[in-house]
C-alpha cells in the first residue's frame, strides 16, 4: 500500500502566471504612458475644446469624467463575470486573480460615477442626490461590488473563496440587467418626464469626440490598474505558497 505524501506546491502552475507576469512587466510602462497621453489630450479637449452647454454652462464638463466612470462600472462587472466563468468552467489559474483584481477597481469607478453624478446633479436638480434611474442603478451596482469584496474578505480558504465569489458575481451578472430594468421602470412610474438626457442623437459632435477620447483614456486606466493589481496579487499568492512550503518543510 503506497504512502501518502504531503508535499506542498502552489496551486497555481508556475508556467502560465510567470509568463503573464513578465508580459505584464513589459506592457505596463507602455500602457501607463499611453494612458497618460490620452488623459492629457482628453482633459485638454474637455476643458478647452468642448463648448460649454447653453443650459448647463461649464457643469457639463463633469460628464467627461462621469460618463467614462459609469461605463467602466459596467465594464468592471463584465471583466469579473468573464473571469468567474474562467474560475468555474475553464478553471484557469489566472481567472480568480483577474476577478479579485477587478473588484476594487470597478468599485472605485462606481464610486467616482456616483460622486460626479451627484456633483453634476447639484446645479441641475438643486439637490445633492436625485433618485434618477441612472444614478440609482449605479448605487445598487456599488452595493453589489461591496458585497463581492466583503464576501471574499470573509472567506479564508482561497480556493473556496474563488468559487463562491465567482458564483455571486455570475448571479449579479444575471441580476444587473433585471435590476437596471426594474429601476428604469420604477423611475418612469414616479417621474414621467426625463429630466436630462445625454445619450442618443442629442449629443453634439463637438462634445462626442472629447467624450470618446476620455472614455478611451479611462478604459486604458482601468486596464493598466487591473494589470498592476493582478501582478501584485500574483506576487502575494506566490509568497503565500512559499510560506506554506516553508512551514511544510519545517515539520
Amino acid at each position: 500500500m503506497p504512502q501518502a505524501e504531503a508535499t506542498s506546491r502552489p496551486m497555481i502552475a508556475l508556467a502560465n502566471p510567470a509568463r503573464f507576469s513578465s508580459l505584464a512587466d513589459r506592457a505596463l510602462p507602455w500602457l501607463a504612458g499611453l494612458t497618460a497621453l490620452l488623459f492629457v489630450v482628453g482633459m485638454w479637449q474637455a476643458f478647452f475644446v468642448a463648448p460649454a452647454d447653453y443650459q448647463q454652462g461649464d457643469t457639463v464638463r463633469i460628464m467627461f469624467v462621469h460618463v467614462p466612470a459609469a461605463w467602466l462600472c459596467m465594464f468592471g462587472w463584465g471583466v469579473m463575470s468573464v473571469s468567474s466563468l474562467g474560475v468555474l468552467v475553464w478553471r484557469h489559474p489566472l481567472a480568480d486573480v483577474a476577478a479579485q483584481a477587478a473588484a476594487p477597481i470597478g468599485a472605485a469607478f462606481t464610486l467616482i460615477a456616483l460622486v460626479t453624478g451627484s456633483l453634476w446633479g447639484r446645479p441641475m436638480w438643486g439637490t445633492w442626490w436625485e433618485w434618477d434611474a441612472r444614478l440609482t442603478s449605479v448605487l445598487v451596482l456599488f452595493l453589489m461590488y461591496l458585497g463581492v469584496i466583503a464576501l471574499r474578505a470573509a472567506l479564508d480558504e482561497p480556493a473556496k473563496a474563488a468559487r463562491l465569489v465567482a458564483i455571486l458575481t455570475l448571479v449579479g451578472f444575471i441580476n444587473v440587467p433585471i435590476i437596471k430594468f426594474s429601476v428604469d421602470w420604477w423611475n418612469t412610474l414616479h417621474q414621467p418626464a426625463s429630466v436630462f438626457r445625454m445619450d442618443g442623437p442629442s449629443i453634439h459632435p463637438a462634445i462626442l469626440t472629447p467624450l470618446l477620447v476620455n472614455a478611451l483614456a479611462f478604459t486604458l486606466l482601468f486596464v493598466t490598474l487591473h494589470l498592476l493589481l493582478m501582478r501584485t496579487e500574483l506576487m502575494k499568492r506566490r509568497l503565500r505558497g512559499l510560506r506554506l512550503r516553508a512551514a511544510e518543510a519545517a515539520r
Partner: peptide, 14 residues
Amino acid sequence: IERNERVVLNAVSF
C-alpha cells in the same frame, strides 16, 4: 487531493 493550495494526499491507491 489538494486543499488550501497544499497537496494533502498524493498517489493514494487501494
